[in-house]
């Protein structure tokens, strides 16, 4: 095992479910995740894999009465978040952990000016008695930092373009200089040239403020450009984690990771056909017994349907697959 570097966030065996009228949806099924101080961890997976649910669980923002953490622990520094009372969470959200949402068009309040929306975070977390002028000065400072002209703070969200709104979101998220930033597909709704600007901005700010980041995305290109480590999530479980180089260059991979890479059209070489994964993700309303990927896996064995694979770790690169658990660690072929 690699020495634990300096874990900021540790999630252990997390189970989250949604109780709906049509039955129970098992969104997260035994998720383990470690995020070290100062690093950017990419959480990669497809629609419905549980990426956003993971982020909402960390902030305890799961929809009331419907979503709940059934078991497992979420530890931030030395504190448990999974059973923390709401009053405590309110102090943490926005000041120590904050979130950038996927859709910059809908997550801003349309009837408040963007200056007010940035000031709101500062007002809730600054020591009581902070002067209004002081807060306004900070608003200007943050707007400049994310590349928004401060003289536009009296304007409303509809007066900004998508890329500018995403900058407002980033400003709100970073206003109190949190230690951990959860970025949920921050650039998915943006055009490529604007995406390049926003990613550039986020990288710069992260280095400047030393924020740790959990970057949720389905775009392996974005991961390659921004992340230090990667975790691949499938059906509410992490099935592979490692350094960026492990995931992009090593031979051994979970068959699902291979499928993900086979699905992206290459920019460098000409491929005649893509090699997608056949089939679909398992129905989340049924608790599966064996490996969640078994049904779609080209290497399926008898054991895959009956027994959950245990994580196999080689030099910090973890794969959860029976193909590897039968072999001694370090044996590549």
């Amino acid at each position: 095992m690699m020495p634990m570097e300096n874990p900021l966030l540790i999630i252990k065996d997390l189970h989250v479910s949604y109780k709906t009228d049509d039955g129970v949806i098992y969104a997260i099924n035994g998720l383990d995740l470690v995020l070290n101080k100062g690093e950017t961890l990419g959480l990669v997976g497809e629609t419905g894999a549980g990426k956003t649910t993971t982020a909402l669980s960390i902030l305890k923002l799961l929809p009331e009465r419907i979503g709940s953490i059934d078991s497992g622990t979420i530890q931030f520094h030395d504190e448990r978040l999974d059973n923390a009372p709401e009053a405590k969470m309110r102090l943490i959200r926005g000041s120590q952990i904050s979130m950038i949402f996927q859709d910059p068009m809908t997550c801003l309040n349309p009837v408040l000016t963007i200056g007010d929306q940035i000031a709101e975070v500062l007002e809730s977390h600054c020591p009581p008695g902070t002067k209004a002028a002081e807060i306004q000065r900070k608003v200007d400072e943050i707007m400049t930092m994310v590349g928004l002209p401060p003289d536009r703070k009296e304007e409303y969200p509809h007066q900004f373009s998508g890329g500018m709104k995403q900058r407002v979101d980033i400003a709100i998220a970073l206003a109190c200089e949190p230690e951990l930033l959860l970025a949920d597909e921050p650039t998915t709704a943006l055009d490529v040239t604007i995406q390049a600007q926003v990613l550039d901005l986020m990288r710069g700010l992260k280095d400047k403020l030393g924020t740790s980041m959990l970057l949720i995305t389905h775009d392996l290109g974005v991961v390659a450009e921004t992340c230090d480590r990667v975790a691949i999530i499938y059906a509410g479980e992490i099935i592979e984690t490692g350094e960026v180089d492990d995931i992009f260059y090593l031979e051994d991979h979970h068959p699902y990771t291979k499928g993900l890479f086979g699905s992206i059209p290459s920019m460098n070489e000409k491929m005649k056909r893509l090699n997608p994964i056949a089939g679909l993700m398992p129905d989340p309303s049924i608790k599966y017994v064996g490996c969640p990927f078994a049904d779609r896996c080209p290497h399926k064995m008898a054991i895959c349907e009956t027994q959950k694979p245990q994580p196999v770790v080689t030099n910090g690169h973890m794969i959860k697959c029976h193909l590897f658990s039968s072999k001694p660690a370090g044996d590549n072929k």
Binding site: S161, Q195, A196, Q197, F248
Partner: peptide
Amino acid sequence: QALISSIPLPDPRKQNRERHIIMGE
């Protein structure tokens, strides 16, 4: 040129390629 160099490449070792990030909208 800007469009092509804005595409994030799924290849961490190519990150120091020449970039043409364009400003504005």
